[in-house]
Amino acid sequence: MAIKAVLKYAGAAGMLALLAACASTAGPDVNAASNDTTAATQPAGPTPGSEADFEQNAGHRVFFAYDQYTLTPQAQATLARQAAWLKQYPDTKILIAGNCDERGTREYNLALGARRAEAARAYLVNMGVDASRITTVSYGKERPLDPRSTEEAWAVNRNATTTLRTTGS
């Protein structure tokens, strides 16, 4: 019975994750910061090769089911676009941060976040992105995007987020 409940829970959360993932790839992202106003004032869209360009045209965040680090088809599609974008801009370096919802202990979630970041990293490397361009980090449950204690918020907070590293160092 407990297992059933867990599966049901994971299923529901997975659905939300899928929805969230779709939403993020369709345009307006769950992260409000990506909707910067420059997009509105410049009809041409974000500067090619920029962080905003990456977020808008590749998608910088993939989502996971509860206590899972396997990549959903949607996550794989997003990562494939990330890989294509990264090949287009071979001088860029990225950081992948793994994040978790608050329904776990601090230490276990740090380990789980590392797994999520690694799942995304491995997929990109498999798609031909040079491993030396990628750094991973886990923030566990310490950096929730959505602070609310709801299924919707947890689904958004279970993610691997890719950002461009500032070059030149």
Binding site: E107, L110, A111, A114, E118, A119, S138
Partner: peptide, 24 residues
């Protein structure tokens, strides 16, 4: 990443988890 540290009872060692390639 290194994390989840805790001293041994005699204080001479620290037990911890270390992550390599995503595995802890």
């Amino acid at each position: 990443m290194t994390f989840a540290p805790r001293f041994s009872p005699d204080g001479t060692q620290v037990l911890l988890s270390m992550e390599r390639g995503g595995n802890s």
